[in-house]
Simulated scan of single mutants.
Amino acid sequence: MSALLKLQGVHTHIGQYHILHGVDLEVPTGQVTMLLGRNGAGKTTTLRTIMGLWAASQGTVTFDGQPIAGKPTPDIAQRGIAYVPENMGIFSDLSVKENLLLAARNAGTAEQMDTQRLEWLFGLFPAVKKFWLYPAGKLSGGQKQMLAIARAMVEPRRLLLIDEPSKGLAPAIVQNLIEALRELKRTQTTVLLVEQNFAMAKALGDRVAVMDDGRVVHHGAMQALADDEDLQHRLLGLSLGAHQ
């Protein structure tokens, strides 16, 4: 399986702090790659570096064989990469419809949006349709997360970067999110997903990379990690089995 995204020897500094210490990471085309690790391991910094929100001070980032490190974030997004940050980035004063329209670069009005794709999104995330005209700020946390992911998918994307989508959500909402992302997975969309919910990681991941202290210290099949409790304890300090 060829890598759609590849990081080699990536270092990132934020002010005086050296956060990434030579990250090597490959994200295969058409698969879901989980990026796991303890808090502070560098997972969010990795996503933000890929998107150009923080500049890599050393190393290479290539997307579909083309270098993207050092390019402006809008140029990176234009290549077909969408980013769902941990804080979701929802425009609270705008309606659900207006939030989606902002992300639909080829549509000037809601009527110009791809109707077939919208219906597909409504099937994945019924709350988006139900609260179409509501201010996004009045949605629940789970509904905002659904909107954030739907907004990233309102146009076809080649790669989705999603940062901890289940954080702070009730278990029932997390299960709904897993089902929606499973449907997305069936479309062979390439996803790099940071997640602390290990049941979600096991349910969705094809591949996994584990970070520690700004480096990738393990990579392989997600199922192999899920089946090896000793490896889970060594890499993460806990067991996936305790988080079912």
Rank of each mutant, 00 (worst) to 15 (best):
L161D: 01
L94K: 14
T45D: 05
Q16W: 12
V217K: 11
I14L: 15
P72K: 10
L236R: 08
A150V: 05
G89V: 10
A110G: 04
A242D: 15
V191M: 06
L47D: 00
L4T: 07
N106E: 14
L181Q: 03
F91N: 02
A41L: 06
V96N: 03
Q112L: 09
L169A: 09
N99P: 12
G123L: 09
H218L: 07
R48P: 00
G123P: 01
Y17E: 09
A148P: 03
W132D: 01
M200R: 10
N39S: 06
R158E: 04
G70N: 14
G89Q: 05
A104V: 14
L235V: 01
S239P: 04
H219R: 15
I90D: 00
G37W: 01
T109W: 09
A104P: 12
F63C: 06
L238G: 08
K138M: 08
E164Y: 06
K138Y: 11
Q58D: 12
V174G: 00
L118V: 04
E119R: 14
H21E: 12
A82K: 02
G15V: 07
Q196D: 07
H233V: 14
A103K: 12
I149C: 05
W54T: 14
H21I: 08
D24Y: 09
M211F: 04
R207D: 00
V61D: 04
A180G: 10
M51E: 02
S166R: 02
K129S: 11
I173A: 02
K97F: 13
D212V: 03
P126C: 08
S239Y: 06
D24S: 08
S2E: 15
L124G: 03
F198I: 15
F63D: 00
Q244T: 15
L7G: 01
G9I: 04
Q223D: 15
H243T: 13
G237H: 07
E164S: 08
H13Q: 08
P156A: 01
H233S: 11
T29W: 10
R158I: 02
H11N: 13
K130E: 11
S166A: 14
R207N: 02
L5H: 07
E183N: 13
T12Y: 07
F122A: 07
S239N: 11
A127N: 06
L133C: 13
G220V: 11
T45Y: 02
D24N: 14
K97V: 10
L121Q: 04
N197I: 10
L159P: 01
R105C: 11
M146C: 07
P74A: 15
P135S: 02
L118Y: 02
L169D: 05
P28H: 11
H21T: 11
R151E: 02
T109V: 10
V216K: 05
H233R: 15
V128N: 00
R151K: 10
L236D: 06
Q8P: 03
K167F: 14
L100W: 07
L47E: 00
H219N: 15
G42W: 00
P135G: 05
V84G: 00
G89P: 02
K129G: 04
R48C: 03
L184R: 09
F125Y: 12
A152T: 06
A201S: 11
I178D: 06
A55M: 09
L169I: 12
D213V: 08
D75Y: 12
M34Y: 03
S239C: 08
K129V: 04
T62L: 09
H219M: 15
K97M: 14
E26N: 13
D24K: 07
